[in-house]
Amino acid sequence: MPRKKKSTPKPLKGAALITKVAQLGQATREEKAKACGYYKVSHNGTERANIMALMNALLEAEGMDLDAKVIPHQKQSGRSPSYRISVQKNGQLLIGSAYSKQMELQPGDEFEISLGRKHIHLNKVI
């Protein structure tokens, strides 16, 4: 006579999962996983808690997506800034557009230049 397989309940998700985990309070991870339906019954009838699935479901219920995909139209193009510039032949320093975008600079913005021992500070005049 074949053994009757014990069915596992459907795992909780979303707000129901968060509520149930909060109710369980000081229970262990394994106890919480089993109580929320995140376990498997092996062929010999023992229950094995799936803690990783529980943690992923909790993150998803909280609105966190660790597997977020890059949106195609937001890909970066061009070189990344090196944070180094050189003095040009005419003695001027040219600050590239990557730095201007990062600092959210607009045409006409003014700066106060302060010289340090090994550096130059550009302080935006407000």
Rank of each mutant, 00 (worst) to 15 (best):
A49V: 00
P72R: 09
N50M: 04
K5L: 12
L59M: 15
V70W: 11
L24H: 03
E112K: 09
M64Q: 14
Y38M: 00
Q26R: 15
T19F: 15
Q92A: 15
Y39V: 01
S77G: 08
A53H: 04
K89H: 06
G116I: 09
L24F: 00
L59Q: 13
A27P: 00
N123F: 07
S80Y: 13
T8E: 12
I126Q: 14
L66K: 07
A22P: 05
A98Q: 14
A35E: 12
K20N: 05
L105A: 10
Q23K: 12
K101A: 15
A68S: 11
E112S: 08
A61N: 04
A15E: 15
K6H: 08
K124S: 09
T46I: 02
G14Y: 05
S7G: 03
D109W: 04
A49G: 02
E30D: 07
T19E: 15
I120N: 05
N123A: 12
G78R: 13
M103F: 14
P107T: 08
R48Y: 08
D109M: 06
I95K: 06
G91H: 05
K6E: 09
K40A: 03
T19P: 13
G108P: 05
A68G: 10
G116K: 06
K32M: 10
S100V: 13
E112H: 09
L54F: 02
E110N: 01
Y38S: 00
G45S: 01
E112I: 12
I113D: 02
K5G: 05
K4V: 12
H121K: 10
K75M: 15
I95V: 14
Q106I: 07
L93F: 11
K32E: 03
A61D: 11
R117D: 12
P81G: 09
M64K: 14
S97A: 15
G96S: 13
S42T: 11
